[in-house]
Design a protein around this nucleic acid. Structure first.
Lengths: 194, 194
DNA sequence: CCGGCACGATAACATATGTTATCAAGTTTA
DNA sequence: TAAACTTGATAACATATGTTATCGTGCCGG
């Protein structure tokens, strides 16, 4: 659903920089919605400072899909590409500084890359990498218990746990806030060697 | 993890046909393994007749990721692209007729497409479509109960339920075979209006 | 400074799902 | 054809997870 390339593929930065003048800078508080479920995505979003989360609503119940931090970019991929209503909402979880690149320019940028054969392979790689990411998330969801997923977050992406309110973490792990509390207290007991 | 384009994008068929001579035809029984977890994928797989499933093993426990049928193609995307051990096993669930296109030719085919700008957009679309597919699978896993997922299979892809042994369905839905039986009997009771 | 709200912990109970065991009906194979 | 295996249903019990309610703490805005 989401792709980002800034700093992932430095070779592309010159192309990116060329479009800097078309970007709009936003300095916004927490809980600001950048794209609402059901609306058509009009921008590519780049995070200079702060954190946003992507989630969808299932009868009143938030399901967080992914967190994004400094120097990451994203968009609602299907909505952006196919002009359909977005399945997800994108909102800040902290006060943030965001750059928006309007769709027309983002598409123009992609089209420019398309004409340079040496970059096409790179773009394919980019997509492969994204696909791999979602595959891994999916596999982890299938394979691991919520406790394992929490422990994996703790060791592999501790910044998420440090910066994001716990109920979002629960929604990301696919459990209730109550159960996440249980998991944490269980782990704490396990580590309680005096 | 997997991509396939035959018949999805008829414009590409001429390219595909050009590589027909390099394909190897296999006429194989059920439960034949085409790619084993841990091995590096060496072929693009196209199904003329039959059914294969992709799964991974989690301490003795099969987790089915996807089913493929006639006129669909697949490969273990990461393994194929990055020459790393495959995360998944691919095996037939029925006697099948399979065509294998060795990796070198498949890559050559992709490279040819890369040089035709009008096809690059198509390839990107192809990837977007694949990504969308996995996203939807992922969302469904997060959002829906196993019962809802089973009902959705029943209405949207009944051929899967008809052709595939039930324990593979259970493994695909993410529940035990016992629980799938329970779900089925619960549904049957609900529909039992004499 | 106070009142409300966001955040998190915990208990008690309800429900969903896994595990193990048993049985029965096909199907395949020696 | 008999034995072995595959497939599926069901019961009984164990565990995981959700739901609701209550409490405490800290923060933020009037």
């Amino acid at each position: 659903m989401i792709f980002h390339f800034r700093n992932k593929f430095p070779q592309l930065n010159p192309f990116w920089d060329k479009y800097l003048p078309f970007q709009k800078r936003l300095d916004i508080p927490a809980k600001t919605i950048l794209l609402k479920e059901g609306k058509v995505s009009q921008n590519y979003i780049f995070i200079e400072k702060g954190c946003v989360r992507a989630f969808f609503n299932n009868n009143g119940d938030d399901k967080t899909v992914q967190f994004f931090f400094e120097n990451e970019g994203l968009t609602s991929f299907d909505s952006f590409t196919n002009n359909v209503p977005s399945l997800i909402t994108i909102e800040t979880t902290e006060p943030s500084v965001i750059y928006l690149l309007p769709k027309q320019y983002a598409l123009q940028l992609v089209e420019e890359l398309t004409r340079e054969p040496e970059f096409v392979q790179l773009m394919l790689q980019m997509f492969a990498q994204r696909q791999m990411h979602y595959m891994n998330e999916f596999f982890s969801f299938i394979r691991d218990t919520p406790e394992q997923r929490y422990l994996s977050l703790l060791t592999n992406r501790p910044h998420i746990i440090q910066r994001v309110p716990q109920h979002y973490i629960a929604s990301y792990l696919g459990v209730s806030t109550v159960h996440l509390s249980r998991i944490k207290s269980k782990i704490a007991k396990g580590n309680a060697h005096f």
